[in-house]
């Protein structure tokens, strides 16, 4: 092996770690070049949604299940944190963790009966769950503030410093997002991740190989709900105000769109999809009226051309090209 080959091999071997490191560096220095709070606010929003879509992608993309109700879990996280901190005066971090655990427990209780279901039954159950949560947020106004929302949520604080502007929030949300991203990348490369991918493609075979299908599904479901809840809590502290309309089934569909566009079964794809959907209204401002149509069109076109989503589809295509070229070179 020449020195160059060695370096290339090293890069290939550690590609995931290196990419994560590079992303961390870029984001660490980003505020030096971009100090406009408006734009930082947008990248913060991407970070928040990313935490949610990473979890959702594990459930939809890797495990091949369907959820059209994850905004319900985000809502539980957001309102849970809001109530515990604003009404009961808890520490926001403690509230975030406790709420996430409770949401995980709720997901476990919902998941055990639901995940026996497949396909459209699961779609319906998750939609129903979201509608139930949404209606309660609107109607139970004594606790939730009703349709006009819940205001006065305290910001997060780190070592006594309140995280009350976009710049500070940037340095809280992105380290968290990158940690979750790394854990997700670990998970999908582990035996458990392989099991999830296997059960998504052939449940009978996966089970015959020793994968306990129902348990694996429930594990990812709970994990994705916990991540959604964490995203919701951070959302609440970031804006210090929440209202039910941020958590309707349309939000769930938007989350699914982020995951699907980026790519089923590509953690990096989630970053791309989330960024795209959050950024699009900013750059397509004068298209405001056409926003829905454009969202829908992207989803439809991507799925028609690359059924596994854009990033996954391109990745698979590139991989196949390389393999074919190598094959020809060998013969």
């Amino acid at each position: 092996m020449s020195a160059k080959d060695k370096i290339l091999y090293f890069i290939w071997l550690h590609r995931t770690g290196l990419t994560v490191g590079a992303l961390g560096l870029v984001l660490g220095f980003y505020p030096l070049f971009q100090d406009n709070p408006y734009f930082l606010g947008i990248s913060n929003l991407i970070g928040i949604y990313l935490i949610v879509t990473i979890g959702l992608n594990l459930f939809i993309g890797y495990a091949g299940q369907i959820s059209l109700g994850h905004a319900g879990f985000v809502a539980l996280g957001a309102y849970g944190s809001a109530i515990l901190t604003a009404d009961l005066g808890w520490n926001p971090w403690l509230a975030l963790i406790i709420v996430a655990l409770l949401v995980g427990l709720a997901a476990l209780l919902v998941g055990i009966p639901t995940l026996r279901l497949s396909g459209h039954y699961l779609a319906m159950a998750t939609l129903g769950f979201n509608i139930v949560i949404y209606t309660i947020l609107i109607q139970w106004d004594k606790i939730t503030g009703g349709p006009s929302g819940f205001a006065g949520i305290p910001p997060l604080s780190v070592f006594g410093m309140p995280i009350d502007d976009e710049l500070r929030f940037h340095y809280v949300i992105w380290p968290l997002a990158i940690i979750f991203l790394t854990l997700a990348l670990n998970l999908v490369r582990s035996g458990l991740g392989l099991g999830l991918a296997a059960l998504a493609q052939n449940e009978t075979a996966a089970s015959a190989l020793g994968i306990k299908v129902s348990r694996a599904k429930i594990q990812v479901f709970v994990l994705s709900a916990v991540l959604a809840s964490v995203g919701g809590s951070l959302f609440a502290h970031c804006f210090t105000f929440v209202n039910p309309h941020s958590f309707s089934i349309f939000t769930s569909l938007e989350l699914v769109t982020m995951v699907v566009i980026g790519g089923l079964g590509s953690v990096w794809g989630s970053l791309f999809g989330t960024a795209l959907i959050v950024l699009m209204p900013e750059y397509l401002e004068f298209f405001e009226t056409y926003k829905d149509i454009i969202h829908g069109l992207i989803l439809v076109v991507v799925l028609t051309v690359f059924p596994q989503g854009l990033i996954s589809g391109l990745r698979d295509m590139a991989r196949l090209k390389i393999l074919q070229r190598r094959d020809i070179a060998q013969h």
């Binding site: 392989l194 099991g195 991918a197 296997a198 052939n202 996966a206 190989l209 698979d316």
Partner: peptide, 23 residues
């Protein structure tokens, strides 16, 4: 009953689920 989108190696690895770390 293979996993068509997984690689050959990953398919064979899935046969080692019993020994794999799935904690």
């Amino acid at each position: 009953a293979l996993f068509p989108r997984l690689s050959v190696l990953e398919n064979v690895l899935s046969g080692l689920t019993v020994e794999a770390e799935t904690g």
